[in-house]
Nucleic acid binder design. Sequence first.
DNA 1: GGTCTGAATTGCCAATTGGCAACAAATGTT
DNA 2: AACATTTGTTGCCAATTGGCAATTCAGACC
Lengths: 192, 192
Amino acid sequence: MQNHLANHLSQFGKLSEKDSNLIANNTTLVNFKAGEIFVEAGKNVNKVGFILSGVFRYFFYDKEGNEITSLFMSENDFVTNINSFYEYIPSSGTIVAETECVIILISRENWELFSKEIPSWNSILQTITNKALLTKTNFQRKLISQDATTSYLDFLKQYPTIIQRVSLIHVASFLGITKFSLSRIRKQITLE
Amino acid sequence: MQNHLANHLSQFGKLSEKDSNLIANNTTLVNFKAGEIFVEAGKNVNKVGFILSGVFRYFFYDKEGNEITSLFMSENDFVTNINSFYEYIPSSGTIVAETECVIILISRENWELFSKEIPSWNSILQTITNKALLTKTNFQRKLISQDATTSYLDFLKQYPTIIQRVSLIHVASFLGITKFSLSRIRKQITLE
DNA sequence: GGTCTGAATTGCCAATTGGCAACAAATGTT
DNA sequence: AACATTTGTTGCCAATTGGCAATTCAGACC
């Protein structure tokens, strides 16, 4: 059901029947198995996915070579590296499917087609991008100034379905703590 | 010199002589003394400033009532609460001038005028907004996963002129550490 | 069922950071 | 200049979090 994307977008701006059909006719469903790569670090990103099911994870390596997970993306999220896509530069990180995933794939060519042909496309995508980035900075702000237990509880609130679907080590990295600390925090919570 | 704004914007998209004049004729210079409020928490934000000189600070209060500084804005930055401005909702935080400041002020009415009359306005501002948000999330990511000393050194690199112009207690809050820790880190660094 | 592999937990100890009180320095006001 | 106020520092100790080795657990595979 390709129209899932058009339906989703129509929350943020008007789409005509024609717009909706254009989208449906110029996108494809793609499946990913857990562990498969959607975006490879070092390469330019020329595609955007819209997630119908599953969880993707964005990670990169810091100066010490530690793997840092900085984002999870799941149902009704877009999956891409915005910076790489908009700026035509290599992605500094990797996006990997953490579970089986199904996405609606939009190539750059079709993205540009939509941008030209669909009057509200740019405004809709701008709205979504802004909202996503603001949500991210707001959540990160908490991680910076809170203790680890509070951060973990906030994570459960904000991403209630993610915790069962990804390794705790990645959640720990996302929260900026070690897997040991996360394990102890979870134990502490179940004891209360 | 009102054209400073048009000059700055022209880095990100084409502006005609006419566009430039429209901007100059529909913006005003405004001065702030240190301590004066630009955006008041709880109120809708209907203006955007472009900073010619000085430093502004955005802060809010967390659940425990602690003041959290989450952003500094200085020369050639825009100063506003994007979320409040775009979503027509009250600002959750306050923006205060930390030093004497001079800004080019754009009211919402004139913002909309520019949006209508200047063909590249939306695209330019979208580009700037995206860049600013991406820079912010990238910096915050470091704060989450690094130790405090590294974070402080990164702060000096990223905002070299801010440190001399704002209280260290606000820098500490921005970095997510206490003023005591920051004081010790600074001492440690000068000893090396 | 048995084996293998990676994920998660736990104990122990170290390093980092926080909290508080006291003090010093800088700034603003009269 | 004298005073008050705010900002920054330091010592002391507590709380949090990290690091590492050993162990347990869970799922994959034969």
